[in-house]
């Protein structure tokens, strides 16, 4: 119970701090963020966009790991864990796409421009969508678990291509891409210590939130399956 209160306070603080702390030329107190040329107020998206994108990847990784575990041990609980991780991954993936598109509207002038990062997140969105389409088409539990595990493993090995290949093939605008020397001023991370503090607190808060939601999610799936079996018997 205590850590739930702690999480609530942490996320409340991060949300309020991330939105309301002023951006000034020369920060003097701890609650002032530095002015980053070219980004200005847009820079505040980093407190909400980056954690969602980070959790998208973490959820995808965990879904793959539990899929792999399912294939090795054939324990349906692992499938529930992978499924729950994928569900959360889809939610965070949509959030990351939307927050990123809104930011891009103000920073680059349009919502969508097929930047390498946008293409990659779109591909991950498609993979999640395909995974749920596959799952809903199969009735038998074991078969559904096996086939979706195999599919998520195959999908996972395409991820390195998106991370390393896309930036080479397409020119990128996103902060942190390869040819970023003149476009993205945030790359040399002109965040001061207060901005970094809020950023990492936000990252930690969202990660704890994810693990909590994941636990609730997979436990409810396991209970539901048990109840279904009892009803059938």
């Amino acid at each position: 119970m205590i850590w739930k209160i702690f999480l609530f306070l942490l996320l409340t603080f991060v949300s309020i701090a991330g939105i309301t702390f002023p951006i000034v030329e020369k920060p003097s107190t701890w609650y002032e963020f530095p002015f980053i040329p070219g980004l200005a107020e847009n820079a505040k998206i980093i407190f909400f966009h980056v954690p969602t994108a980070w959790l998208t990847v973490i959820a995808f990784l965990m879904s793959t790991i539990y899929s792999f575990k399912y294939l090795l041990k054939k324990n349906l609980d692992d499938d529930a864990k992978a499924y729950s991780a994928a569900q959360l991954g889809l939610i965070f993936c949509v959030l990351a796409t939307v927050t990123g598109a809104v930011w891009a509207k103000f920073a680059w002038g349009q919502f969508w421009s097929w930047d390498p990062r946008q293409t990659s997140i779109f591909a991950i969105l498609l993979i999640y969508g395909a995974l749920f389409a596959l799952r809903s088409s199969i009735e038998s539990e074991d078969k559904r678990a096996t086939l979706s595990a195999v599919y998520s493993l195959i999908a996972f090995i395409t991820v390195p291509f998106f991370i390393f290949v896309m930036p080479r093939i397409m020119k990128g605008l996103h902060p942190g891409s390869a040819e970023d020397s003149n476009t993205g001023p945030i790359v040399d991370f002109q965040m001061n210590s207060s901005m970094q503090l809020i950023f990492f607190l936000s990252l930690i808060g969202f990660t704890i939130l994810y693990f909590w939601m994941w636990q609730v999610g997979y436990k409810s799936i396991i209970f539901r399956d048990k109840l279904n079996k009892q009803v059938m018997i």
Binding site: A123, G129, F161, V165
Partner: peptide, 26 residues
């Protein structure tokens, strides 16, 4: 996968596209 899933047709391009995307773009 499709043959074992028993769902023919529409699911096939949906599942294949994300897997083939890096190959096709390159």
């Amino acid at each position: 996968i499709i043959a074992k899933a028993g769902a023919k047709g529409t699911l096939y391009p949906v599942l294949s596209f994300p897997i083939l995307l890096p190959l096709i773009l390159t």
